[in-house]
Structures are given as C-alpha cells and as structure tokens.
Design a protein around this nucleic acid. Sequence first.
DNA 1: CTATGGCACGGATT
DNA 2: AATCCGTGCCATAG
Length: 484
Amino acid sequence: MMNFQHIHLPSIRPLTTAHLAQTMTLLGLTAMELRQKIEDELAKNPALELIEGRYCPNCNRPLANSGPCPECFRRQNESSDEPIIFISPRDDFIIPGSAVPDNENPFDELIAEYQDLSSYVLQQIATEIAPEDRVLAVHILTSLDEDGLLPVPIIEIASYHHVPVSRVEKIIHLIQHADPIGVGSPSPQEALRVQLQVLAENHPVPPMAEKAIETGLDLIGRRQYHELARKLGISVNEIKVISNFISQNLNPFPARAFWGEVHLPPSKLQDAYYHPDIIISLLNQNEDGPLVIEVISPLSGKLQVNPEFRKAISSAPTNKTEQWQNDLEKASLLVKCIQQRNHTIIRMMHEIAARQKEFILKGDTHLLPTTRASVAENLALHESTISRAVSNKTVQLPNRKIIPLAKFFDRSLHIRAELLNIIAQETKPLTDTEIADILKKRGYKVARRTVAKYRSIEGIMPAHLRARFSRQQHKTVPVVIHAI
DNA sequence: CTATGGCACGGATT
DNA sequence: AATCCGTGCCATAG
C-alpha cells in the first residue's frame, strides 16, 4: 500500500548486532545531536569523509541550491495526494527573530530587509508611538535577543538617546503588549508577569500566580513546590496548579514557540526550537493538497567512506592494519546506519502523516489517539524502534509551531482540547460533573474524576474559583497563547 | 449535601 | 521492568 520505490534507499537486509545497536542509538538522536555525532566521528576517523556541497540525500544527485531535490520532488508530486516526503539537508537555518541586525545601519532599511520579530512587532505598534519615539522603539526591538528578551539595561538605551528613562519604559510597555505578548521584557519573570496580566483581563488565572512568578520562578523551575508553598503560605497543590498554568499558558521566552511540558536541559530545548527534526508544510499553501514532509538531515554534504583510505589500506604499515581496518568498518557502518535511520524516520512519518493529517491541518481537537505500538505494527517494526524514533524529536507544523513529536501520541489531547472549548464558551462555570456529561454527549466518555485531572493539566481552576471571572466578555484572545 | 482533591490500584504503554 | 494514565473510593471544604 505504501510505495517507496521512488525513494532510493538501501534495502533492509538482516543486520549484524553491531549494526542494529548503532541504528538504535542514532535513531534516538535529534538532528542536532546527530550532527554533533557525525562531526565527532569525522574528527577521529580518517576513513570517513564528508564531501562538501549539496547532494540530494535521496538520490545522491548534486543539487543547485538548498531545499528539496527537484527531481525527487517532481516524481513524488505526481503520485497524487500521498504525502511528499524526503530527506532535506539544512545546515543553514535562519530562524525569524534570531537575526539581530547591526544597529549602526539606517533603521528603516533594516526593517524592510528583515522580516523578523523586530519588524513584526514594530508593525503592530507603529500607529501607537509618536514619530519621535520611533527611533527608540527600533533601537529596543533590534536589541532583542533570540528569546525575545531585552538584554540591554534600560538606562543604557535612555542615556544613548539622551532621553528620560520613563520614556523608554513607556515604549517598552507598548512593545510588551504586542504579539508575542511579553516580548521586550528584561527578564523571563517580567515577560511572564505581563502575559499573566493580559490573560487575566479575559480569563481566570490562579490566585497568587503573580506572586509566585515574582518571588519563586526559580523554585518552580526546579520543582521545589514545597518550599514555595511555604513561602507564599498556600498549599502545594495550588502551587502545582500555578506551575501547570504557567507552563501551559505562558512563555518566559516570548520569541520561542513552545516551552513547558518538554523537560529538556535549556541547551537541548533551544536546539529543539531552532532546529526541528522534521518540517511539515503544505504544497503551495494549499490545504487540500498533499503534505510536504522534510526529514532534516543536519549536514548538507555527502557522507561516505573515503575511497582513498580504502585503497591505501592494503599498503598500511603492519602495526596499523588492524586499526585501519577497524576505522574502515566503523565508517561504513556509520554511513549505513544513518541511511537506515533516515529510512525508518521516513516510513514512520509517512504513517503518522497519513493517520494524523486532520490534526496537522486543523489542530488539537482532531488528534486521533494513537499508540507507538500500533504504528510499529503497521510498519512491521519493533515498538522500541518507534519509541526511539519519536523520543526527543520535534516537528514544525504548517502553522510554523514547533511541537514535540510525542504529541502525536497523546492519549487525551483531543479531549482536553474539547474541554478547553467547553470552558471557553461556558456562560456559567460548569462543574466537573457537568463537563463530563457534555463530553459524554459529544462522544468522549470520561469519568468525572478524569475531567478534574484534565483541568489540572490545563491549569484551569475548579468551578467555584472560575466564577467571579466568567462573566467577562470574550474578546478574540486565544485561551492558550502558546499552546500546540 | 455537593464539588473537588488525594491516594492508590490495575491496566495499558513505553 | 518501569512508567503513565484513568478511575474509584474516601476525606474534606464550602
């Protein structure tokens, strides 16, 4: 049923245990980790060679420019509505917002040139700032770091332009309330505080959340709920609600697409955001067309066993032959394993895309609960293979949000999304039992107790605490700022 | 008496 | 084998 004949990849033969072991290891790596690994190997193994330049990783033809191989692309495009899927070398990502222009240059030109975070924000606030403050705004915006925070002290900006600090502060205030909310804040705390305030205008927020952010963000980060609870004089559970709420609804780094549920060390998290492992987009922005799936290969050159080395091995000095032989084997093994990895990921993404196209296009409510095991079964792979392939990886969706690949396997996401809908539309605060009933009517059979759990996961407070907020008019503010 | 959270159990998933 | 998740039961708060 699936046709991969157009993708030229090595056939799958019985593997040696070494082969298997390494394939497994590589499969669990993110694109960026793989890149590191390859660089390490290149450095210490003379038998391995990277030919610089652009080659199609699927058919090995040289390519004129970056992006997909036109030949492979065309061939797949012919086969109707199947997803178009290929390995895509991308070592030169430019992420919107990460480019920090040199602010020596004339500002307006820069703005025109960079379609990035700075100009995006400036467009929003342009009409609200006095012309003479424009330079200030641009200075601030071009000084933002890649997280959307302002690393420069306000005083410095003020004295540079010989204006009072209060005037700079006023502009920062404006910037902070543009989308993404909190951008331009001097610290994560500040960004969270602004987001919380804006959110509180239209939605219930947990009591004491602001206090918690101010006094104990680091404690929340380290999950030391007990200590914070003591400090604020509230229960540990309330802290948990606050913590959930923050990670679900707020974003300490306004320029980043997601934060929270993924508990990776900061450096890994950053990599995950800037370098997704897979990119899904639409062909010509057409919602009815096939999905285009790029499996990122972190190096653009061609990785191969150095033919010179292979030849030279017969004339190796006798005390080195064993060493060289060893290098040669390891090199060819690595190359094979990387191909194997790509092949597996491609097959898996093909399967996932076929099952979850609705979710990819329309969002959380359309996720079909799926297990890794069932995908494994369909592809005749072992469950642990899929587990490896899924873990730690991130996907960029057509809406440019980057999510963990594991989200495709969330058992309850669609129900939680529906629950979010219900609560967003409620006129009076609904109790858990009532929500459970509504969900049941809509085809989701869940126990009342489970509704409570979902609420907690989503950082939503119990009915009696939602009460006093609920009559507020609903502006068109999304319930969840940086969900997905 | 009602709504909700804590704990713990068992089955599914990794 | 270890972990995650949905659920039932019970205690507690309002």
